[in-house]
Simulated scan of single mutants.
Amino acid sequence: MLDALRTPDERFDGLPDFPFAANYLDNLKGFEGLRLHYLDERPEAAGATFLCLHGEPTWSYLYRRMITVFVGARGRVVAPDFFGFGRSDKPVDPSAYHFDFHRNTLLSFIEQLNLTDITLVCQDWGGIIGLTLPMAMPERFSRLLVMNTTLGSGDHQLSKGFIDWRAWVKKNPDLSPGGLLKRSCPQLSPAECSAYDAPFPDGRYKTGVRRFPEMVPDHADAPGARLSRDARRWLGQSWRGRTFMAIGMQDPVLGPPVMRALKNDIRNCPDPIEIDEAGHFVPEWGEIVAKKALAAFNR
């Protein structure tokens, strides 16, 4: 069993605009002994499932603005925290954090909750890993809602913005997620920024935060790269669901050039909407994105 830290519950008391109940799995197949946190908001007579996958260095708090809109449209919203983030357990060994570890977590999670008619809502690592899932279980996925992400195919040069970001994380191993969000999303209140710091009482809890930039496949034989190329091919040839894409135009890492390339990789992906004032963390502008996506999906 992996040695892991667990953030004290009191760190999550009184988070602004986050009235959602915590749910846990400590018997996830293949990950026994680790506790995974997830949100599961299910209105009466819920229809489709919105599976919201966060990225680095955030957690399910990122989706609070979108959850309300989806639930209001009678959708079930399920938002897990990757191991190493949010209220989920945080393995202390850096080698525990690799592409297959997190992808297999999600595959097992979807199967254990028996999620169907899924709209994959993804940003950053939520898409880098999440967009490889539909080809493994196509009968469970119906729609994609894609925001500032990519596929880690390893056959394209990484953007200068990402290379700079990875170098910055190396130099700042005890980085503040709340401080990072504040720079990208100046409209956030101090309490909201603190909510992004809540999962990490000190640097010992940030192994995942430090590791995720290193996990992005940067050559053709990197872990996850071949799988991502297979997913790209599958999304381009075999995807039969509907897609909605939103781009935060101020993102220097996974911004317009990366997203327009991804659009061309997804079969029948319509032209994206552009959020001019948004940066990397598009779900912080999530109310408008969620409403436009629902309209596009005719929901």
Score class of each variant (00 low, 15 high):
R42Q: 15
A22E: 13
D40M: 12
F31I: 02
W59K: 01
F12W: 11
N23M: 05
L53K: 00
F50T: 00
N27G: 06
R42S: 15
G30S: 08
A46D: 14
F18N: 03
A46E: 13
P57N: 05
A46N: 14
L36T: 04
H54V: 08
T58F: 03
Y38I: 07
W59N: 00
F50E: 05
L25V: 09
L36N: 03
D26W: 13
L34A: 02
D17H: 09
E41L: 05
E44C: 01
R35F: 12
S60W: 05
T58P: 01
H37S: 04
P43A: 01
E32Y: 08
R11S: 03
N23W: 07
T58M: 04
K29A: 14
P57Q: 08
D17N: 08
G33K: 07
N27I: 09
L25A: 06
H37E: 03
D17V: 00
A22P: 14
P57L: 05
W59Y: 07
D26V: 10
T49P: 02
D40S: 11
P16Q: 11
S60M: 02
E41V: 09
E32C: 06
A46Y: 15
R11H: 12
E32W: 09
A46C: 14
L53A: 02
G47M: 13
E44N: 12
G30H: 12
A21I: 10
R42Y: 14
K29Q: 14
A46M: 14
Y38H: 06
A45P: 11
E41H: 00
